[in-house]
Design a protein around this nucleic acid. Structure first.
Length: 218
DNA sequence: TGGAGTTGACCGACACA
DNA sequence: TGTGTCGGTCAACTCCA
C-alpha cells in the first residue's frame, strides 16, 4: 500500500500514486505537498476538458450492450468483439481517439486496452524524453469520455515545458485545481483551510492553484 | 516519408480449483 | 500444480500531415 495524491480539476479527476517504499520520515502533510509539487508543476492545463477528436462522442445503447457482451470474453477477444461491433455500425475510428489535456510533458502512446474489471478503456503512455522512465495511464468510461482519470508512474528526469511557457507570460493554469487530496498511511488527518498559502519554493503558481488540501490514512 | 496512434500477440502475475 | 484470466508491454501495421 502506498501513498496517493488526488486532484480534482474542474470536475475531472486525476491521480498520482507513489511507490510503497516512499520516504515516510516526513510528516504526512509535508509528504502530501512534496508529492503534489512535481505533479502540479506539470499540471498546466492549457486546453481542458479533454475531448474526443472528431465529432462528439456518444455511445448508443446497442454499443454499450455490445461492450457488456464483450466483457464476458477473453481479454483480447473482448476488445476485438467490441471493435467488430463498431465496424458494423460504420462509425468513424477517429471518434474514439482520446485527446488528453496538456500536462507539460510529451508522451508517446504505446497501448490501449479495455479493462474488464473497471469497465473502462485504458491508454498507456511513456514520456518521450530520452532516458526518462515516466509513464502515465489514462482511463475513461465510454459513456463519460470527459471523465478522464490519469495515473502517473515514475518520475521525470527533466523539467516540463511549463517553465518555458510561463516565461512567455502565458498563464500556466487556465483552470487551476479546485481540490487536492493526499491519501497517506498516517495516523492523523490534516486539513487546510481554503485559499491557504503553500510554503513550497520553486512552485510559481501553487498558492493560487490550491484551494483545499487534506491528507487521510489509507 | 516519418511520426504518432492502433491493435493483435505475447508475457508475467495472480486467483482458483 | 495446472489452468484460465488479467494487466502491461511490444511491435507490426495503419493513418495522416
Amino acid at each position: 500500500m502506498g501513498c496517493s495524491l488526488r486532484a480534482v480539476v474542474t470536475g475531472k479527476e486525476i491521480m498520482k500514486e507513489t511507490p510503497p517504499n516512499a520516504d515516510k520520515s516526513t510528516t504526512p502533510l509535508h509528504t502530501a505537498l512534496s508529492l503534489s509539487l512535481s505533479f502540479l508543476l506539470s499540471f498546466s492545463f492549457l486546453s481542458f476538458p479533454g475531448r474526443w477528436a472528431g465529432e462528439s462522442f456518444e455511445r448508443t445503447s446497442e454499443e454499450i450492450a455490445a461492450m457488456n457482451e464483450a466483457s464476458h470474453l477473453t481479454r483480447d477477444a473482448s476488445m476485438e468483439a467490441f471493435e467488430e461491433f463498431r465496424e458494423g455500425q460504420e462509425t468513424e475510428r477517429s471518434s474514439y481517439r482520446l485527446v488528453l489535456p496538456a500536462d507539460g510533458y510529451e508522451w508517446k502512446k504505446y497501448g490501449q486496452k479495455f479493462i474488464k474489471n473497471i469497465g473502462k478503456f485504458r491508454s498507456y503512455f511513456k514520456c518521450q524524453r530520452t532516458g526518462c522512465g515516466a509513464k502515465k495511464k489514462a482511463e475513461w468510461t465510454p459513456t463519460e469520455p470527459s471523465d478522464i482519470k490519469v495515473k502517473y508512474d515514475g518520475k521525470h528526469t527533466h523539467d516540463s515545458w511549463a517553465y518555458s511557457v510561463q516565461s512567455e507570460g502565458i498563464p500556466l493554469l487556465a483552470q487551476p485545481p479546485t481540490s487536492i487530496t493526499c491519501s497517506h498511511r498516517c495516523l492523523e488527518i490534516k486539513t487546510l483551510p481554503l485559499g491557504i498559502m503553500i510554503p513550497i519554493e520553486s512552485c510559481p503558481f501553487l498558492s493560487a492553484a490550491i484551494v483545499d488540501i487534506f491528507c487521510t490514512c489509507t
